[in-house]
Amino acid sequence: NKASVVANQLIPINTALTLIMMKAEVVTPMGIPAEEIPKLVGMQVNRAVPLGTTLMPDMVKNYE
């Protein structure tokens, strides 16, 4: 099973992601793959992301 990106803390709306906000975890359903973490740094979330939430592509602005 591949790990996904999971919020390590509450991430407020429009916050630019940093490494300490994210962790890799095997979850179902899968979200953004953990190997994308370096690419996510500096990208903004378009909603508040609660602690423990799996990051999905539609939660990150301009994620492709």
Rank of each mutant, 00 (worst) to 15 (best):
K61H: 12
N62I: 06
N62F: 07
M59K: 02
T53Q: 11
E25A: 09
D58A: 08
N46T: 09
A34E: 04
A16N: 11
L40E: 01
N8M: 08
A48E: 13
T28K: 15
V6K: 06
M59Q: 03
M43D: 06
G52M: 06
V45N: 07
T54R: 07
E64C: 03
I11A: 01
A24M: 06
I37D: 00
L55R: 00
E64F: 05
P38I: 15
Q44G: 04
L17I: 14
Q44N: 13
T18N: 13
M21G: 13
E35W: 05
M43A: 10
P12H: 07
V49A: 04
M21I: 07
M21P: 01
L51S: 08
V6P: 00
V6C: 03
V49R: 04
M59N: 07
V26W: 11
P57Y: 12
G52F: 07
E35V: 14
P29N: 06
T53F: 06
A16S: 08
N1P: 08
M59S: 12
T28Y: 11
L10F: 10
E35S: 10
N1H: 12
T54Q: 07
E25I: 06
K23F: 07
V45F: 02
V27T: 14
K39Y: 11
M56Q: 05
M56V: 11
T54S: 10
D58E: 09
G52Y: 09
G52Q: 08
N8E: 04
Q9E: 14
L17P: 01
M22W: 02
N1C: 03
V26L: 12
A24Y: 07
I32S: 00
M30E: 11
K23V: 07
A24R: 08
L17R: 00
M30G: 10
P50Y: 07
V60F: 09
V49N: 01
A34Q: 05
S4M: 04
E36A: 13
T53V: 15
T15D: 05
G42D: 09
L51V: 12
I32K: 01
I13A: 12
S4W: 03
I32R: 00
I32D: 01
L19C: 03
A7C: 02
V49E: 01
E36C: 02
P33T: 12
V49W: 02
I37M: 12
L40D: 00
M59P: 01
N46F: 07
A48P: 12
V26K: 15
K23Y: 06
E36D: 12
L40H: 01
N62C: 03
P33Y: 13
T54F: 02
K61W: 12
T54Y: 02
K61V: 14
I20Y: 08
V26D: 13
R47T: 06
A24V: 08
A34M: 14
V41L: 11
P12D: 11
L55Y: 01
D58C: 03
L19N: 07
K2H: 13
A16H: 14
G52K: 04
L40N: 00
N46V: 12
N14P: 02
V41H: 12
A48D: 05
M56Y: 06
N46Y: 10
E64N: 07
G31Q: 07
N14E: 09
M43N: 04
A34D: 06
L40T: 02
Q9Y: 09
T18G: 04
V5C: 03
K61D: 07
T18S: 11
P38G: 07
P33G: 14
L19S: 11
L10D: 10
M22Q: 02
A3S: 12
V49C: 03
V60K: 01
I20W: 09
P33S: 10
Q44C: 02
P12C: 03
M59W: 12
L40V: 11
S4F: 04
S4Q: 03
T54H: 04
V41Q: 15
P29A: 04
K39N: 09
V45M: 08
G31R: 03
I13L: 13
A34C: 03
L19G: 11
S4C: 02
P29R: 04
Q44S: 15
P38Q: 12
Y63V: 12
V26Q: 15
A34P: 07
G52N: 15
E25W: 12
R47Y: 15
Q9K: 11
K61Y: 11
T28P: 03
P29V: 07
V45A: 04
Q9G: 05
L10A: 10
M21Y: 05
I37A: 09
A24C: 03
K39M: 07
L17N: 00
A48K: 09
Q44Y: 11
I20H: 04
A48I: 08
I11L: 07
P33Q: 04
